[in-house]
Nucleic acid binder design. Sequence first.
DNA 1: ATCTTGACCTAAT
DNA 2: CATTAGGCCAAGA
Length: 111
Amino acid sequence: MSLFFDQVYQIVQKIPVGRITSYGAIARYLRHPQSARMVGYAMNASHNRPDVPAHRVVNRNGLLTGKHHFPGSKLMQQLLESEGIKVKNDQIIDFKEFFWDPNSALPPLEI
DNA sequence: ATCTTGACCTAAT
DNA sequence: CATTAGGCCAAGA
């Protein structure tokens, strides 16, 4: 039972509708600043977790690097656009405006 | 059991 | 500027 994965899922579930965050931001919040990759891997394993909106997590440039892991090739973009986020060429428009940073939005994780 | 491959990111060269 | 190197560690072959 990977505690790290579960923590990742908890954060992802807290991303407000219509906002997005990045793998690295989550890793930083969990005090594993060098484990951004594992956050991505957690998303890959999040198929078992119905309540995890993996489409709201993108890389730090606002690029939809994980879209190929969704069924179909446009689903991730469609999900985002249905929440009011514009996407062009796998790139989120006004990424900075929609970015939700757990490090400033949530209380610091207990040590 | 070992080896490879990643939904990544930062710092150093 | 661009490129590399290192860290992370779960799955698939």
